[in-house]
Nucleic acid binder design. Structure first.
Lengths: 216, 216
DNA sequence: GTCAACTTGAACATCAATGTTCAGGTTACG
DNA sequence: CGTAACCTGAACATTGATGTTCAAGTTGAC
């Protein structure tokens, strides 16, 4: 009854931690990666995709999956962590200084897909992860957009007649809508960034002011 | 083994049909109404609320619910039908002629909550109702908004540089977002109609044009 | 080449939700 | 009133998903 070491149990080697793949064998690392890829995809499509579906999509036995992720919640959490890291990377690479309108346009172009994925996974996590975790991720993604909008309002280039919170909601909402329309084939993916930006720049313009033809 | 008449089986008396409550006793009618009310509320909050939850929210035994609705799908379908009727009533009472900007403002004010409810229920129905039913309801709600937008584009008051389909998406998306923000306490319900309209009028304005201060 | 790490399908226990049945209690309605 | 319609909780069968165990096979690492 010797314990197989594929699951340490003490957490020091669990797959969902950063650098968790350190001491593992090459095929194990490969599988963990496949599972995360598949889970990210499946969960973005359907928030309550079954573990069996994810395993199948990853080309891996269900038992193998449970070998790396003790529970469904563990898996979802790992995917959430991973997606957030990707999101952070994309946003860190974006210049958010200068004219707020240009900054917003750059931000949208660089991150509308990944932010949408983050939010999809987050929605999938809503049921099985603690609220504080949800909240933390949520706040983090909101912060950058809020900063740009606040600066734009202060500079007088964004409207001041609606709650800041609502404008942030508007930005995210339209990014998600565009992502979904793209996934459904109702919107050309290559055109999405332009469409989102154009809509947002207009939506954020103060009444009485002319809508910028392009981010100045 | 006499069959109880509370469920006809032949469909001619099933609760989910229009006028279904004709021959039933007063308490039965009352319960059916309570169940539909509760289901509408629960499904809007959580797309896969359990039948037990709905029965409890309706103040009714689970068996009673199954007495009136053979399956969960039947119930969902009944709620969908009912919500669509309410939506139609609200929209029929709205004047959609005249200046497209005013028409849109009126439409938003009259229907943002109900349209959001319709869509929530529709999402709940996504899994258990046939696609053609989903599609039918969806198309129907889209039609009115599309007509106004098309007219506005033709009149030159709405932008022409983005796909019409996207503008329709934008309108619905922002109505839903506002409804959710309202439900979550992030947006004042009394202010919602103004906020949505103001955002939409700006979003629909062509680049280079001044955003209308108010619907003219 | 050898051994431990890893994978795998089958089988099993568990749990929650859906429907169904039953036996008896209420209530509307004539 | 009296009866048929209705409501109810408890109990049961069923289904689908989550985890777990096992015995045997495969593969990476040294």
């Amino acid at each position: 009854m010797a314990a197989t070491p594929r699951d340490a149990g003490d957490g020091s080697r669990s797959a969902q931690r950063p650098g968790a793949q350190a001491g593992r064998r090459a095929d194990a690392r490969r599988n963990i990666r496949s599972i995360l890829d598949a889970a990210q995809l499946c969960l973005a499509r359907d928030a309550d995709a079954s573990v069996a579906d994810i395993a199948k999509a990853a080309g891996v036995g269900r038992v193998t999956l449970y070998g790396h992720f003790k529970t469904r919640a563990d898996l979802v959490n790992a995917v959430l962590t991973r997606t957030m890291e990707q999101s952070d990377a994309a946003l860190d690479a974006t210049d958010t200084t200068g004219d707020p309108r240009q900054a917003l346009t750059r931000l949208v172009g660089a991150s509308w897909q990944i932010v949408h994925q983050l939010h999809s996974v987050l929605r999938a996590a809503q049921r099985e992860l603690p609220p504080e975790r949800i909240r933390a991720v949520h706040d983090r993604t909101l912060h950058r957009v809020r900063a740009i909008i606040a600066r734009g309002r202060h500079d007088g280039v964004f409207r001041d007649d609606l709650p800041e919170r609502w404008l942030v909601t508007t930005v995210f909402t339209l990014m998600h809508a565009a992502a979904e329309d793209t996934a459904a084939g109702r919107l050309d993916a290559d055109d999405a960034a332009r469409v989102i930006s154009a809509t947002l720049l207009a939506a954020l313009t103060a009444p009485g002011t002319a809508v910028p033809t392009q981010a100045p």
